[in-house]
Design a protein around this nucleic acid. Structure first.
Length: 958
RNA sequence: GCCCAGGUGGUGGAAUUGGUAUACACGCAGCACUUAAAAUGCUGUCCAUUAUUUGGAUGCGGGUUCGACUCCCGCCCUGGGCACCA
């Protein structure tokens, strides 16, 4: 019996594979079907590969091997996102050039990946900081520039004092710099932008074309934040002077315009400064503005209560009803979204309601929820419709804590009735008196607002359009009047508890009010029928949006949360922006023949607040030499997300120095078939990549819409207690240590076995031994299991082994295809357990044929490539197991001939019987009825119904 | 507050997508081997009760169904993300 020495085996094969070049593929061989399996390439940090990489890359490595064995030409490349801040910060600290650290780190990463048995061809890698790569990043910038997808503007941007650089809005995390954690301040700075917003709609719509996790799609849609609405101008008047100005607001609810009872400007809104002379409480206003500016984002989050200041001395005019309304500034309105100003409709917006309540502003209802009854009481087209006011009276007896209900043929409800006059309280009291006799009621309050409903009234044979109100009364005493006989016949009254009301009610309008009664007053934010809106009364919200916008001369528009992508960085270690400026300051694209526009090396790293490239003598001289005296280069470099937005387009043709990718390879390899990576890239990287592909298609560089046809995320790797790994917690686990102790094969298999790919994995060192033992068993016992007789290879007296084997092939194949690795590994374990069970005490009996064992090794190979290769060789094979074909399973053999099925009585398992595969229901049923335990449970009772689920169960209903 | 994901033994998790809940693995207990330990092998392991049995369990409460971890309604809790999006 040999000892399983994982270190020796893994080293041996890693060297051998390298020598044999088993990873090489012919990228021009288009005879086979292609499969493009992509990993999110890492940033080569000084800390080396982490456990998250290990899981994700193992997952894709298994898939790659599986696809390859299935006859696909598989591209499974790896590379390095090697521009970025950490290398530069390290250079500032140590003086070591990023070029050097990057090279070192890449070498470390490569050796770590190799030690895990990850099969990448590193001759075909992409390194974003190499001129061979970034010349094409620059070339693409040029194409975007020529096609009007790039522009320069000065803007207030987030500024990180520590990094001395600007940061895109999308890259600010909690008010802090995503990369270094320093508080962000605002600074006015010129920079280049990509017009990602041009593609906002396509970025939403095309998500339908890809197989991505639903939550990732949802998140992207929310990030883009499309909302349709209208822009409407409000006139602003001053009390002091005749000066008039306009405020443009964006609203998604122009239908609520008649209910706008105040306006709010963002404190930063330009108009606030313009109105300075007119505002009589400028001191207060100014203070609020400066308070807002000083507030960090975190402070704003904690202070949940609405704040604001009224602009005294100015009024706005609601364009719909010409009413004067007050104007406020408040920090709940953001300068960057919409127009930085809102019309506030407290009756139909929760934030506005909260604000209005605090500042004592009118709340004016303009939308009534609308219920159209369906089914038996649905409106009948042929009948006339009668409009009437309806009041519902909720009457409570406080002493008994019960509610007054009416019961009649068509159901149960609160006291309800038509109203003739205007006094709803009196009318409701009259209804209660007439129908129940109670006469001493105290009116407490109105419940909710107006509600409209349309229903067919059977007893009157007419449609009724009800305008509902609901009032709440409490009973003062139990004094009653006699009820008129005819009322008594119609219905009877009763008192029920709160719990019972829920079950009793069957009228939708009353259920609506009952909910508000119990859950408290809430703002109605849905759509409905317009009320209190003059000639627009009765219109649907949707229709009214258009009509009211038109009426006040507004414009229907679409607004997005997404903003254009700021790509300028005042950093050294990034891709230089290929732009030069004429002596007059005119920006000009550097022509293609001068690319790559190389990053200069004579640069001091110390941050000065200007771009480090401004330091370079060489760069200045180069510029003047090519373009003439007085010309200056752009000193900013590009956001590293630009580099990673197109790297997958380069892999098919990394050595091409004529094009970023040849036409034929583009056509064959692109787009990516399966992309695996962390969910943390849901917003930026994935969105930017999609934008790139869309922009490039528009320019004519590509002919597909989406870069990644199928996307799956791997979960986070946590420590054994379920906590995130972090340097500060000191719980970081190094993959190298694990490989050293347990071997790459065990680390790989355990990583995938511990949890479903998309779930979090808790890295528990105690549990990995299970996988280690599993592999060790295989290594130790395989020579006991087989007969080394190749002539004999397909003859096996033990039929059961064949059946188990084919079931396992089937299960593992399907599981890999669906990325359900945890159950794939589990079924491989089950196979080994079964073999061990079969072993018994007849050790001279050969359990499997060589052919069967080799088949098993092949399906284990993607998970544990080293140990399988070693055993494979020991069995006398000369070629690598990884060049073998994936075993096919025989559907017949994978199926059981007999099944143990459950016999249920009324859904409870009472017995089990064994059946033949395909046995008919009648025969099974008869045999089940013979079963002693079934007989006992049936006790002569009649079987009313029998439900048979093929090969699973028989349920007898008695 | 909003959005997303999730809640199954002591632990990680499985369940053919509405059909025998708890596969596989860890741990634990017992036994064997050993001078002993480790390793290994075997047996047991959801809970309660009982010789065999019978109940009860998939966060909690309802509902649909012959049948619910799975679907619907309401609540509770955990993790992650976002920051008042008009």
């Amino acid at each position: 019996m040999k000892k399983y020495d994982h270190k020796k085996i893994e080293k041996k094969w890693q060297a051998q594979w390298e020598k044999d070049g088993v990873v090489k593929i012919d990228k021009d061989d288009q005879s086979k079907e292609k499969f493009y399996m992509l990993d999110m390439f890492p940033y080569p940090s000084g800390d080396g590969l982490h456990m998250g990489h290990t899981e994700s890359y193992t997952a894709s490595d298994v898939f790659y091997r599986f696809k390859k064995m299935n006859g696909f030409n598989v591209l499974h490349p790896q590379g390095f996102d090697s521009f970025g801040l950490p290398a530069e910060n390290y250079a500032i600290k140590t003086g070591i050039h990023p070029l050097e650290t990057t090279q070192q780190n890449i070498a470390t990463y490569i050796s770590q990946m190799k030690s895990l048995g990850l099969n990448y061809d590193f001759d075909e890698k992409v390194v974003t900081s190499e001129p061979e790569y970034y010349r094409w990043t620059q070339w693409l910038f040029g194409k975007f520039f020529e096609n009007d997808l790039v522009y320069k503007k000065t803007s207030k941007i987030n500024w990180c004092e520590s990094c001395q650089t600007g940061i895109a809005n999308e890259q600010v995390v909690g008010g802090e710099c995503e990369r270094c954690g320093t508080q962000i301040v605002l600074k006015e700075i010129p920079g280049w932008f990509f017009k990602i917003t041009n593609f906002a709609d396509a970025l939403i719509d095309d998500l339908e074309k890809v197989d991505w996790p639903e939550h990732t799609k949802k998140n992207q849609i929310n990030w883009i934040g499309k909302s349709e609405g209208a822009e409407i101008n409000f006139l602003v008047k001053s009390q002091k002077s005749k000066v008039e100005s306009k405020i443009k607001v964006f609203t998604t609810r122009p239908d609520t315009l008649f209910g706008a009872t105040y306006m709010v400007l963002a404190p930063e809104h330009n108009l606030v400064q313009e109105l300075k002379e007119q505002i009589t409480n400028w001191d207060k206003v100014e203070k609020y503005i400066s308070d807002t500016q000083r507030k960090s984002e975190m402070d704003r989050i904690e202070g949940k209560e609405k704040t604001g200041v009224k602009l005294e001395g100015v009024m706005a005019i609601n364009p719909a009803n010409k009413q004067e309304i007050p104007v406020f500034i408040a920090d709940y309105v953001l300068a960057g979204y919409g127009t930085g100003a809102i019309m506030a409709v407290p009756a139909h917006d929760e934030r506005d309601f909260e604000f209005a309540t605090k500042f004592g502003i009118d709340v004016k209802e303009v939308i009534a929820p609308y219920l159209e009854v369906r089914g038996e009481f649905a409106v009948r087209e042929d009948n006339k419709t009668v409009k009437r006011n309806v009041v519902t009276a909720i009457v409570k007896d406080p002493k008994a804590d019960k509610f007054l209900m009416l019961k009649n043929l068509s159901g149960n409800f609160f006291v309800i009735g038509g109203v003739e006059g205007d006094d709803f309280v009196e009318e409701a009291k009259r209804e209660v008196l007439e129908e129940t006799g109670y006469k001493n009621l105290e009116f407490i309050k109105q419940i909710g607002g107006e509600l409209h409903n349309l229903v067919f009234a059977k007893h009157k044979d007419e449609n009724r359009y009800g305008i509902n109100k609901c009032l709440y009364f409490e009973l003062k005493n139990e004094e009653k009047d006699e009820i008129v006989k005819e009322e008594l016949i119609k219905h009877k009254s009763l008192w029920v508890t709160k719990e019972e009301v829920n079950k009793f009610l069957n009228q939708e309008n009353q259920i609506y009010y009952w909910k508000i009664f119990n859950e408290g007053e809430s703002v109605y934010i849905g759509s409905g029928k317009l009320i209190n809106s003059r000639e627009f009364d009765g219109l649907d919200s949707e229709e009214a949006k258009q009509k009211i916008t038109e009426f006040v001369g507004g414009e229907l528009t679409t607004n997005y949360r997404l903003r254009d992508w700021s790509i300028s960085r005042q950093r050294y270690w990034g891709c230089p922006i290929p732009i030069v400026y004429s002596p007059e300051g005119e920006a000009q694209l550097i022509p293609e023949e001068h690319l790559p526009w190389v990053l200069p090396v004579d640069v001091d790293f110390k941050p000065t607040g200007t771009s480090p490239l401004a330091d370079s003598k060489e760069l200045k001289e180069r510029t003047e030499k090519i373009f003439g005296k007085g010309w200056t280069p752009e000193f900013d470099t590009m956001d590293t997300f630009v580099d990673s937005s197109w790297y997958y387009l380069r892999y098919p043709d990394v050595h091409n120095d004529k094009e970023f990718c040849s036409e034929s390879r583009k056509k064959y390899w692109l787009p990516v078939d399966l992309y695996i990576g962390g969910a943390e890239h849901t917003y930026m990287h994935l969105l930017f990549s999609r934008f790139f592909v869309k922009a490039m298609k528009k320019i004519g560089l590509l002919d597909f819409d989406e870069p990644f046809m199928k996307l799956r995320h791997q979960g986070m790797v946590l420590d054994s207690k379920g906590k995130k790994m972090s340097k500060s917690k000191g719980n970081v686990i190094n993959p190298n240590d694990m490989v050293e102790r347990f071997g790459a094969d065990s680390v790989r298999a355990y990583m995938l076995f511990a949890a479903p790919l998309e779930d979090e994995v808790m890295w528990n060192e105690d549990n990995i031994v299970g996988v280690y033992r599993f592999l060790e068993k295989i290594f130790k016992y395989t020579n006991e299991w087989v007969t080394f007789n190749r002539d004999n290879e397909k003859i096996n007296l033990n039929k059961e082994i064949d059946s188990i084997l084919h079931k396992t092939i089937k299960k593992v194949s399907e599981d890999i295809e669906n990325l359900k690795y945890n159950t794939a590994v589990s079924s491989l374990m089950i196979f080994v357990n079964k073999i061990r069970e079969q072993r018994g005490d007849t050790s001279e009996n050969q359990l499997m044929t060589l052919f069967q064992l080799e088949t098993f090794l092949k399906i284990l190979a993607p998970f544990a490539p080293h140990i399988t290769e070693e055993i494979w060789e020991n069995l006398g094979n000369e070629k690598s197991i990884h060049l073998e074909e994936w075993p096919k399973y025989d559907e017949k053999l994978a199926q059981d001939e007999k099944h143990l099925i459950a016999i249920q009585i009324n859904g409870k398992v009472r017995s089990e019987i064994e059946i033949e595969d395909g046995e008919d229901e009648e025969s099974i049923k008869n045999r089940a009825l013979e079963d002693e335990r079934v007989k006992k449970w049936l006790e002569e009772k009649e079987v009313k119904k029998a439900i048979y689920i093929k090969n699973r169960l028989l349920n007898l209903v008695i």
